[in-house]
């Protein structure tokens, strides 16, 4: 039997959570002893190629492409983890949730003081995913199995959670790993 596969993605996030993941430093060598990476910004594989044991999701869903990716992860991963405050709660991007979408778009592309847009158009190229009416945390779109809070969760926290899951141990994170003040 091959090694279990892990996929990761960043949706409406800042990549800070992935950076924090890379902060496991040399432990990444231990990790690749344990797993093979599938789709992930780390290896630039664009789609999940086979069933994965674990999917790690950074960021919530702010546009249709995020939803599409999240559906792909949910379909192909046994365990799906929301990691970071953006994934678990929507985070900073949700600041727009109290402002009507049209106002957001007008301010960004039409009315903002530094905007130069003589044709007064809004982004409408089919290549550009449509925005959602608001930003959703992942668990409002698909079923999520585990949540790792933090902005970002520390490398130690991610490491502890991943190794526990991969070695079939209960995920018991000590208080220090989840305390942020």
């Amino acid at each position: 039997m091959g090694k279990p596969r892990v996929a990761t993605t960043s949706l409406a996030g800042c990549f800070g959570c992935h950076m924090s993941f890379l902060d496991i430093d040399e432990r990444i060598l231990d990790l690749i002893e344990l797993v093979d990476f599938d789709r992930s910004p780390i290896d630039d594989i664009k789609h999940i190629s086979q069933r994965c044991a674990i999917g790690l999701v950074e960021g919530g869903c702010c546009n249709e492409e995020n939803v599409h990716v999240l559906y792909e992860f949910r379909e192909n991963c046994d365990i799906l983890i929301s990691f970071g405050d953006c994934a678990t709660m929507g985070g900073i991007p949700t600041l727009r949730n109290n402002i009507p979408l049209k106002e957001c778009i007008d301010e960004a592309y039409r009315d903002g003081v530094t905007v130069y847009n003589p044709k007064n158009i809004v982004p409408q190229d089919p290549e550009i995913p449509l925005l959602l009416d608001k930003v959703y945390p992942c668990h409002e779109v698909v079923k999520i199995d585990y949540f790792l809070p933090g902005c970002p969760p520390s490398a130690d926290c991610l490491w502890a959670a991943l190794t526990a899951l991969l070695t079939d141990k209960p995920v018991e994170l000590p208080y220090e790993l989840l305390k942020y003040d």
């Binding site: 249709e64 979408l101 809004v122 089919p126 449509l130 959602l132 009416d133 409002e140 698909v142 079923k143």
Partner: peptide
């Protein structure tokens, strides 16, 4: 694994109107 309470077509409706095009994905 997809939540029934999330309605993608409803969620993209406004943006679809603003951009005056349909969702390519959904």
């Amino acid at each position: 694994g997809r939540l029934k309470s999330f309605h993608i077509m409803k969620a993209v409706e406004q943006a679809s109107q603003i951009a005056d095009r349909r969702s390519e994905v959904f």
